[in-house]
Deep mutational scan, measured.
Amino acid sequence: RPRTRITDDQLRVLRQYFDINNSPSEEQIKEMADKSGLPQKVIKHWFRNTLFKERQ
């Protein structure tokens, strides 16, 4: 599967949610997917990777 490119607008949506809650529920992930147009799987990976980077 090719790598998903996240646009600036999509990144802005993800960052807004991450700043509020870095561990979103399934419902919140679905909401983000609707707003950003990204697949839920991509959003889950983005949150996991971003949380890991923040903790380092």
Rank of each mutant, 00 (worst) to 15 (best):
N49H: 02
Q10Y: 01
D34T: 14
D9A: 14
Q10K: 03
Y17K: 05
E26R: 09
I20N: 12
E31N: 03
E27S: 13
D19L: 13
L14C: 02
I29K: 01
D19K: 14
I6D: 02
P2H: 12
V42S: 08
I6P: 08
L51S: 13
T50F: 03
S25Y: 03
D34R: 09
Y17D: 06
A33S: 10
N22R: 15
I43H: 00
E26K: 12
D9W: 07
K35L: 07
K53P: 06
P24T: 01
F52H: 06
S25L: 03
R1N: 14
R12F: 06
P39R: 07
I43D: 00
P39K: 15
E31F: 03
L51H: 13
D34I: 09
T4H: 02
T50Q: 07
P2A: 08
N22G: 07
E26S: 06
S36L: 13
Q16S: 15
Y17H: 08
E31R: 04
L38K: 00
R5W: 10
P24Q: 01
D8P: 15
K35E: 07
Q56A: 14
S25N: 06
P24V: 03
F18M: 07
T4C: 00
Q56P: 05
R5T: 15
Y17W: 06
Q10M: 04
R55V: 09
K44H: 08
R12L: 09
R3M: 15
V42P: 01
P2K: 15
S25Q: 05
N22L: 09
I29W: 03
W46D: 03
D9L: 09
R48E: 14
Q28N: 07
L14E: 00
T50E: 11
R12C: 10
R1M: 01
R15C: 05
R55H: 13
F52G: 14
D8Q: 14
E31I: 05
S25H: 02
E27K: 15
L11G: 09
E26I: 14
A33N: 06
R12G: 10
N22S: 12
E31L: 05
T7Q: 05
T7G: 06
L11C: 00
E54R: 09
S36E: 08
K35F: 04
D34Q: 08
I20G: 11
F52W: 07
F18R: 10
L14A: 00
T4Y: 12
F47Y: 04
Q16G: 12
S23M: 11
Q56V: 01
D8C: 14
P24A: 01
V13W: 12
Q28D: 04
R3C: 03
L11P: 00
I6E: 03
K44V: 09
L38R: 00
Q40G: 09
L11W: 10
D34V: 10
R5P: 15
A33H: 15
E27C: 11
K53R: 11
R1K: 00
N21C: 08
Q10N: 02
S25D: 05
N22F: 05
Q56L: 01
I29P: 00
P24N: 00
I20S: 11
T50H: 10
R12A: 08
N21Y: 13
Q40M: 09
D34W: 04
H45W: 13
K41S: 11
Q16K: 14
S36W: 06
D34S: 12
T50N: 11
N21H: 12
P39W: 02
K44P: 01
R5K: 14
Q10W: 01
